[in-house]
Amino acid sequence: MSSGTTELAWFTSSYSGTQGDDCVEVAVAEQGVLVRDSKDVSRPAFAVGRASWGPFVRFAAER
């Protein structure tokens, strides 16, 4: 995936708290979904392939 993530439309997780803690943002790209820390957007995002997104979310929800 492209390393330039500024042109993507980022969305805050619906599970993110209103206190500004433990927030993640996601952006849908052609090849998959990018995930980043909304408190520090200067850090690189990580990518999850489209086919792996559902299993990734289910795994994360169990934690």
Rank of each mutant, 00 (worst) to 15 (best):
A61I: 13
G17V: 11
E30D: 13
Q19V: 14
R43N: 09
L8F: 09
F56C: 02
S2V: 09
A29H: 08
V28C: 05
E62P: 00
A29G: 15
S52W: 01
G17P: 04
V33H: 03
F59C: 11
A47C: 04
L8P: 01
A51E: 08
S2W: 02
Y15T: 10
V57P: 07
S14M: 10
V33Y: 00
V35F: 02
G20T: 12
V35D: 03
V26L: 12
W10T: 02
P55E: 06
G20V: 14
V35I: 15
S14V: 15
L8I: 03
G20K: 04
G20A: 14
F56R: 00
A51T: 02
S14C: 11
M1W: 12
W10C: 06
A60M: 08
F11S: 14
S38W: 03
S42D: 12
S52D: 15
E25R: 07
V48T: 03
Q19S: 12
Y15A: 09
V48H: 00
T18F: 11
Q31T: 09
A51V: 00
G4F: 15
P44H: 06
S3H: 13
G20R: 05
S2Q: 08
G20N: 07
P44E: 10
T6Y: 07
Q19P: 00
V28I: 13
G32T: 02
A27C: 08
D21W: 03
S13I: 08
G49I: 00
T12I: 14
V24W: 04
R63C: 13
E62T: 15
S14N: 04
A51I: 00
A51N: 05
G49Y: 03
P44A: 11
V33M: 08
V24N: 03
C23P: 10
D37N: 06
F11H: 14
T6G: 13
E25L: 11
A61Y: 11
C23W: 02
W53D: 01
S38P: 13
E62M: 11
D37F: 01
V57R: 02
V26S: 09
S2D: 13
S38A: 15
E7C: 04
F46N: 03
D21T: 15
W10Q: 07
V48K: 00
R36F: 06
W53Y: 06
S16Y: 05
V28L: 09
V35R: 04
K39I: 06
S42N: 11
R58Y: 09
C23H: 08
D22M: 05
T12Q: 10
S2I: 07
A29C: 09
G54I: 00
G49W: 00
E30Y: 04
G54F: 04
S16C: 14
G54Q: 13
Q31W: 14
W10Y: 07
T5W: 06
A45W: 02
A61W: 12
S38Y: 05
W53R: 03
A47G: 10
K39Q: 15
E62R: 06
A9Q: 13
T18I: 09
R43D: 06
G17S: 12
S3A: 13
C23Q: 07
T5E: 07
F59K: 09
G4K: 07
L8M: 12
A47D: 09
C23N: 09
S2F: 01
V57N: 04
Q31G: 15
S52G: 05
K39L: 10
M1H: 09
A61S: 12
T18Q: 11
F59H: 14
R58F: 11
F56G: 05
